[in-house]
Write a protein that binds this DNA or RNA. Structure first.
Ligand SMILES: [Mn+2]
Ligand SMILES: [Mn+2]
Ligand SMILES: [Zn+2]
Ligand SMILES: [Zn+2]
Lengths: 147, 147
DNA sequence: TATCATAGGATAATCGTTTTCCATAGCAGT
DNA sequence: ACTGCTATGGAAAACGATTATCCTATGATA
């Protein structure tokens, strides 16, 4: 079933590229496949290294361009950080909470309660028109807690 | 009363510097005063320009160093962003939600419901030991909604 | 298969932030 | 107040992730 989910996401991303009139290049397909399969919120560098296996001449700039394209199409969620590089979620490309290990950099998707309602509340109180949100919890993952 | 609050924060920051065995330089005191008074989550650049009024020879590096120092002492909250510069909150140096205008960059502190409990919930479900968190809501402020 | 605009590759540029290095000036201790 | 030690400030270079540039290569369509 995990395979099915990933496959579905892959199809959606490809469909989005088609719908947007973008070319289905081997590099893009490779990035899409990796994003659809990765549950660990990979970095650009990680995606880059994996794409390079199949296409050794691939440039890092291409990965950045593809990420940016998928992001603007709403097909990938970017978790930008100030001091270290961004991380990406291609499985759940919509806002959702994350739990982040400050030691090893692991990022996981926890079970999320009603964030939407909270967002609406915020909008009402601040007068803002909320478009999206971001919720991160920082700490030590189980593995890093043991020194 | 707003003056009282700012004054209190100023004292706390100065006390923290003293307690940490750090020198009370004119530049640091200037930064502290600005952070204690600013409710608009200023950027390094903004703090820099204001400090320069009183101390024209001030370097941008000094502001960065001071921000970093205050941050590691827990006297200022840093809101780091991936694509643009960081913003700082010296009035409430602990984690709390923010509402951010994606057009003009305005950042405000909304009324916050129980975030602490939510954090504990997350910890339990993920097995993480949560130390801090971050919650941002993005959208358009009232002023920017009118084109 | 010819055409053509888009996308890839290589590299330089960007920009906020950090580091480096030395002169300066807090701040004990006298 | 004076001295001396050392943290700190200032200036500029370095840094690192990301973006822009520029030219060639290659999907997509007919
Ligand atoms: Mn996720
Ligand atoms: Mn705040
Ligand atoms: Zn960890
Ligand atoms: Zn605005």
């Amino acid at each position: 079933m995990a395979k099915g989910l990933a496959e579905q996401r892959r199809q959606e991303m490809i469909a989005a590229l088609r719908a947007g009139g973008h070319r289905l290049t081997p590099q893009r397909l490779a990035v899409v496949e990796i994003l659809a399969e990765s549950a660990n919120h990979p970095s650009v560098e990680q995606v880059f290294k994996r794409v390079q296996r199949d296409f050794p001449t691939t440039s890092l700039a291409t990965i950045y361009k593809t990420m940016s394209l998928l992001k603007q199409m709403g097909q990938v969620l970017e978790l930008g950080f100030a001091h270290w590089g961004s991380r990406y979620d291609g499985k759940k490309p919509y806002p959702h909470p994350h739990v982040i290990c400050t030691r090893c950099g692991a990022i996981v998707d926890p079970e999320s309660p009603g964030m939407q309602e909270l967002a609406q509340q915020m909008a009402g109180k601040s007068g803002f028109r909320i478009s999206h949100h971001r919720l991160d919890f920082f700490g030590l993952c189980p593995r890093c807690q043991g020194r």
